[in-house]
Structures are given as structure tokens and as C-alpha cells.
Amino acid sequence: MEEEKVILVNEQDEKIGLMPKQEAHEKGLLHRAFSVFIFNGKNELMLQQRALHKYHSPGLWTNTCCSHQRDGETSLEAGKRRLFEEMGFTADLKETTSFIYKAPFDNGLTEHELDHILVGNFEGTPNINKDEVAAWKWMYLDDVKKDIQANPENYTAWFKIIFDKFYQHLLV
């Protein structure tokens, strides 16, 4: 099976090429990504705990799902695809904002992403993919914010950045 490729972009989110995902992370090159935030009717956020065998940030809590767009795929199409692959359900999504971040990891890889924030609603229980997700839970945004401040080591780098800088874009 061919390795998944990411879309390399400039700071204006214009495609400048494709590269295998692992290579892009080894070189720390800017590429397109998305982060999905799913809320229920009580305005709680669905968090996922990344599977323990993931190549970076294993076991850390983060937003409902995240990944990379495929060539020719919109952020909304990619978000819906990955939401189903990781969490086992679909939802209507809307894009709220995007931002660039760079986060080096202990394993020598670097996330350097232009991340599109997507939000949606879902009532029910996900059917998680255990290859991707170790656990999930609903939390109120204020409780998430307090827990990130008290226990930042329990959360992914991009999730902490989103909460710090783009909290207002998550309010639905």
C-alpha cells in the first residue's frame, strides 16, 4: 500500500506539492491539515484519547479527530471522512478558521501545519476505531480549559494551541 501523502502549502494555503506524510513530518514542512470539534446538545465537546501506539502524541487527549486532506479533497470532505474512520459516525461540519503552528516532538518529527478548524454537532455514542482511538468522553469547554491549564502534559500540542488562541471559534 502506498504511503499517504500530505499537501504541502505556502502560508496562503496554496498547494505547492505533495509529499509522503512521514517525510513531511521528518523535514518539518508546512502542510494542510484539519481538526474536527464535535459538540452535543448540552454544548459539551467530544474528546478523544489518541491510541497508545500512535507515532506521536500517543495516549494524549485531543479534539474529536484530526488528520490531513487528500489531494483534491476539501477540508469538509476530509473532516467527514476521517470522523467516520476514527469515531464511526458522520456529522455536518462547518469551517470556522485556520491557523499555522509548528510543534516538534521527542521522536524527531515535527508537525508544521496549516490547520483548518471544523465544528459540528452529534448526539449519540461513537463507534471508535481502536487502531486510532483509545477512549473518548464529553466535556464542557470551561472544564477542558481548566484541565489543560492544570494538566497540559495530558493534551496534544495542536489542541492546546487551538484552546489558547482560537477558543472563541469553538463556541457554537
Rank of each mutant, 00 (worst) to 15 (best):
M1L: 15
E2I: 14
E3F: 02
E3M: 10
E4W: 10
V6Y: 09
V6F: 07
I7D: 07
V9E: 10
N10K: 08
E11M: 12
D13K: 12
E14V: 14
K15G: 05
K15H: 08
I16E: 14
I16A: 06
L18I: 04
P20D: 08
K21W: 11
E26N: 12
E26T: 14
K27P: 07
H31Q: 11
R32Y: 10
S35R: 06
F37D: 03
I38P: 08
G41T: 13
L45V: 15
A51P: 03
A51L: 01
K54M: 14
H56T: 12
W61F: 01
Q69T: 14
R70Q: 15
D71K: 06
E73N: 12
T74I: 02
L76E: 11
E86L: 03
M87K: 02
G88S: 07
D92M: 00
D92P: 02
T97W: 01
S98D: 13
Y101M: 10
A103Y: 04
F105K: 11
L114K: 09
N121S: 14
E123W: 05
G124S: 10
G124Q: 06
N127Y: 06
N129S: 01
E132P: 00
V133Q: 10
A134H: 12
A135P: 00
M139C: 05
Y140S: 08
K145C: 03
I148L: 14
I148G: 14
Q149V: 10
Q149W: 09
E153C: 04
N154E: 12
W158E: 13
W158N: 14
F159D: 11
K160P: 05
K165G: 04
H169A: 11
